[in-house]
Design a protein around this nucleic acid. Structure first.
Lengths: 237, 237
DNA sequence: TAATTATATAGGTCAGTCCAACATACCATC
DNA sequence: GATGGTATGTTGGACTGACCTATATAATTA
């Protein structure tokens, strides 16, 4: 018995064909981020299609993060710089549509972030560690300014998570972690202020572990840190 | 000093406004997967816009994975079931656009997949383990059929990776792993045939570890497995 | 010189028209 | 009765040409 003797015949849409051409041109580097494509009317002529079909293609490319459209004189379709935006949007949509639960997301995040923390102990340079310590001190100062700044503090604390994770020097991991940012913000805001001390102490210990190049310890500490504050948020819900 | 007292007034495109309404309606559950939206002409009338603007909105929603369009009689826009497709597409695009190197991707994959393997030991039911063992036996039979089936074997071997990973019951992890599939295929094809025995033995051992509910052991074995074949592919390049 | 006002460019939208794909029902042939 | 053709209505796909809106740049004016 043959398996799959025939391929599905796809009557490709005109717009799809255009999308594919432009996408390839961008991926091949024929257009760099910031470059402007010809105007819609010119493109339509070049492809030999109507403006409406071209417009569909542009909308698709815009949605997938390859193009940004500006109106007005000297406007047009500009090639967008690579961004994690689409990853994060699609992950967000997936979660919202309940292909996944919060618990799955939380587990995923812990694994990835803690692994980054472990690798940070191996890969971070002294200079990077100093930089992170500086950032930590700013965070500490912010905490001392009192409850008016509590929300700002929490926002900065999340950014600090990313700073630590970036020390692992893995852009894929960092991009995926960043894509969970929206979700993180919506929960951290519920953390009550009297946990300030605990938060700061945890980070202090993690930084110390990184300085000692003790990845296992750093990983364990961050794991406890996240686990604790995750637990707390589910109890306040 | 106030921060951001006003939001940017966005002269939202008509199509964006429509996208938002339909997206919300779907997220709110007013439309279930499989449901059909009214025809384009009706929708255009309902929103009070032209058909072209509506079409743009539909393309955007199609691209973000919420709608599927079918032509012909009884055709129309159907609400799509949630899928990991968009996540994997956007990740793929991000990596292609040089956000990351192969090494970063490989590291990312190992961490995630091995963690799933570890969790599989905790979460997989007996039935699922039996199912996986069945799949393994098919793989073994395929290997015995000789070199003509070697490429088929390698493809199935990759699918087997996913089968194991799915036992961890974390859809986010699985979705992200799947999104690396394209990349995996392009490398596994270089693995020479005489490693067949080694591959099968490794999997046998991993399944045994899962049956013993020894997550640490399973994780270690899979790590070695992937690490070995990753090394090998870089030596054949 | 600085503010204002044209103007050209380019995207956004619409209406109408026609084409292509498909489901369905009906019909003819064997 | 089963198969294959044919007609038809619905729905998406595409084109055209016109007009509106946004914006950078140049020309104009106070």
């Amino acid at each position: 018995m043959m398996e799959q003797p025939f391929q599905r015949v796809s009557t490709s849409r005109v717009s799809e064909a255009i999308v594919e051409q432009i996408r390839q041109a961008i991926l091949d580097g024929q257009f760099q981020p910031g470059d402007r494509l010809p105007s819609q009317r010119e493109l339509a002529k070049m492809f030999g299609v109507g403006r409406s079909a071209l417009l569909e293609a542009i909308r698709i490319l815009e949605q997938s993060g390859l193009l940004t459209i500006r109106t007005g004189g000297n406007g047009g379709a500009f090639v967008t710089a690579p961004s994690i935006r689409q990853v994060s949007d699609s992950l967000d949509l997936l979660v919202r549509r309940e292909g996944a639960t919060r618990e799955e997301l939380a587990e995923f995040r812990i694994v990835l972030e803690c692994y980054c923390c472990k690798m940070a102990a191996e890969k971070a340079s002294e200079e990077e560690l100093n930089q992170v310590e500086l950032e930590f001190n700013e965070l500490k100062e912010l905490a001392e300014k009192g409850s008016a700044y509590w929300q700002t503090f929490l926002t900065r604390e999340i950014e600090f998570h990313f700073s630590i994770a970036s020390l692992a020097h893995n852009r894929v991991s960092l991009a995926v972690l960043h894509s969970l940012a929206t979700w993180l913000h919506s929960f951290s805001s519920q953390i009550p202020e009297f946990y300030e001390g605990r938060m700061l102490n945890n980070w202090q210990a993690i930084i110390a572990a990184l300085r000692n190049r003790d990845g296992e310890q750093a990983q364990r500490l961050l794991n406890e840190h996240i686990y604790f504050f995750n637990l707390m948020r589910s109890s306040t819900e």
